[in-house]
C-alpha cells in the first residue's frame, strides 16, 4: 500500500518544480530547491498527513526555500542567466525564447497575480485548486487573474 507521502506529496513534484523555476529562474537551482523541500516534507510527513492543506504547506516551503536561495546568493535579477545553456543543450532556442518571454512578463506582475496566473495558465488549475494552493479566497483568485490578464492584454498589444 502506498504511503500518504507517495500519494499526496510526491505527485506535486512537477508543478512544484515549475513554481520553483518561476521564482529562481534557473533549472539547476530549481532542482536543488525542490530536493530541499522534499527532504523537509519527508521529515515532517506525519505532520503533513494531519494537515488540512498539505499542498499549501509545500508551496510555502518552496517559496521560503527559494527566498533563502536569493538571500544566500544575493541574486536579485537572475533573468540574465535564464537557461541560455539549455539553448545549446537542447537546440531549441526559439522555445527558450518563448519561455523567456513568458517569464519576463510574469516578472512584471505583482507577486500574487504572478502566482495565480502561473497556476492557471501553466498548471491549468481550477479556481478552487488555486485558492487551495495559495490559501487565498476564490474572489482573490478571480481578481488577481483578471488583473494579470488585463496586463497581458496590454503587453501583447504593445508587442504588435
Amino acid at each position: 500500500m502506498k504511503s500518504f507521502f507517495e500519494t499526496h506529496i510526491w505527485p506535486l513534484k512537477s508543478k512544484l518544480y515549475r513554481m520553483a523555476y518561476l521564482w529562481v529562474k534557473d533549472r539547476e537551482v530549481a532542482n536543488d530547491v525542490l530536493q530541499q523541500v522534499f527532504e523537509k516534507a519527508w521529515v515532517r510527513k506525519n505532520d503533513l498527513e494531519s494537515m488540512d492543506n498539505p499542498t499549501a504547506w509545500m508551496v510555502k516551503a518552496l517559496k521560503n526555500e527559494s527566498l533563502q536561495h536569493f538571500r544566500s546568493t544575493r541574486k536579485i535579477d537572475p533573468l540574465g542567466d535564464l537557461d541560455l545553456a539549455d539553448a545549446t543543450k537542447t537546440d531549441e532556442e526559439e522555445s527558450v525564447d518563448r519561455m523567456q518571454q513568458v517569464l519576463r512578463f510574469l516578472e512584471k506582475l505583482p507577486e500574487k497575480q504572478r502566482e495565480v496566473f502561473h497556476l492557471r495558465e501553466v498548471e491549468g488549475l481550477a479556481y478552487e485548486e488555486i485558492a487551495s494552493y495559495l490559501e487565498i479566497s476564490l474572489d482573490q483568485v478571480k481578481v488577481n487573474l483578471f488583473r494579470a490578464r488585463q496586463q497581458l492584454k496590454v503587453y501583447l498589444i504593445g508587442k504588435k
Binding site: K13, S14, V43
Partner: peptide
C-alpha cells in the same frame, strides 16, 4: 501572432520537467 507566441511559450513552460527528486 503575439498571442499565439505567448500561449505557445506557456504551453512549453508547462511541459518543463526537473530532475526527479531523490527519495529521502
Amino acid at each position: 501572432e503575439s498571442a499565439k507566441e505567448f500561449f505557445l511559450g506557456i504551453s512549453e513552460l508547462s511541459q518543463l520537467e526537473g530532475k526527479e527528486p531523490v527519495k529521502p
